[in-house]
Design a binder for these strands. Sequence first.
DNA 1: GAGTGGTCTAGACCACTAC
DNA 2: TAGTGGTCTAGACCACTCG
Lengths: 230, 230
Amino acid sequence: MVMMKGKGLLRIDKRSPLPIYYQLKEGLREQIESGILKPHDRVPSERELEEMYHISRMTARRALSELEAEGYIYRARGRGSFVAEPKIRQGLLWLTSFTEDMRDRGMEAGAQVLGMEVIAGDEKLARRFGADPTEEFVKIQRLRLADGEPMALETSFLRRRFCEGIEWLDFTNRSLYKTLQEEYGLRFGRAEQTVEAKVADEFEAKLLGVKPGTPCLPWSGSPISTMARR
Amino acid sequence: MVMMKGKGLLRIDKRSPLPIYYQLKEGLREQIESGILKPHDRVPSERELEEMYHISRMTARRALSELEAEGYIYRARGRGSFVAEPKIRQGLLWLTSFTEDMRDRGMEAGAQVLGMEVIAGDEKLARRFGADPTEEFVKIQRLRLADGEPMALETSFLRRRFCEGIEWLDFTNRSLYKTLQEEYGLRFGRAEQTVEAKVADEFEAKLLGVKPGTPCLPWSGSPISTMARR
DNA sequence: GAGTGGTCTAGACCACTAC
DNA sequence: TAGTGGTCTAGACCACTCG
């Protein structure tokens, strides 16, 4: 087995209540998001992970399969698993700077609310927040616009106990993040956001009516934004 | 084991090149879409499927897990797996009648193109069409509007060989299906479409600015529309 | 031929639900 | 207590890629 180029082993705790596949997946995801693993870098194979962490192949496989489904890696039979192409997979920076970013491009930023709902008892969601499984969340999905053109599809999950009543507000042209800070006194704890996006090529740009090179959105992944009171 | 109420066994062919989990998943999906299995009906448990088809539990589990991920069923630890809530999960009817449906509600139908791209070498996609793995597809994603309000997110995959040049057209306010029929002489073979949708409740209706009861879209599932020359 | 991902098996233990 | 889904193991065979 070839040594990994100094990436180091992840901390996998078999006694943890968190599933092994989940610890492994999140560990790899963090390495990708932090840039330790770069686009097109090779990710350890299923059998390498099996050896490295003394787990079964099916467990390693599940971690990689979920990363693939969420757009973090791609896999090729006979070749291996690799970090996916650069996507807009940023944290707070992108989250808060959409308006400024659009203004820099000489465009007016906007948003269209597609849906808003209260969710309760979602175990997987709660796990990502380290919250009680019965805790309520507010889910907000918005289409981010630049000069009226759709730029990205954004999904946010908020812990409702920290922002009660927020579901009554209209965020069509109101900053969600500014509201949370100013109205609810919240500061960002952890924030993650995944939006599968790409840069418009010439013919897509023509169709969308934007300049080539403008980021556009073929379709959305499974974005999650998290927030906690500090 | 309790007998299923006359649903009958699916045809699972272990010698088929199609994976067992895939045959099982598609069979169950068809039973759900055709109405043989109705919302909140119980789906056979993993261990029942294991016995019924003489397969391992992990194989049965994969079929059910994918159905869950695609919104067809929900699962509850200790209770079982059940057909999911009524969603707009219709075929051709809905696909073609969006404009008429909206007109009946006194609204003007429209569409916003979110993205359009040519895809090649997607094995899973090709499999759904029974096409060669290297075949090219055109992916079109549109936001369906009624009186300018987003109603649904629609994703279509077309076999490019049957509609070359279609990626140069602007479908913002042009019927995709009419174009395919009139310009390319295509008739619908198989068409499936899944859009995770729900009816707006009172507070959501207020936020979206539509009448309560109007269908709206919290977020999209994994819709696939297929089309073939006949 | 060695390594990879894709599928599949036949078990296992756990936490949970419903009776 | 019986049944369920969630996780995990330690193997297996296949088709594929690459050197």
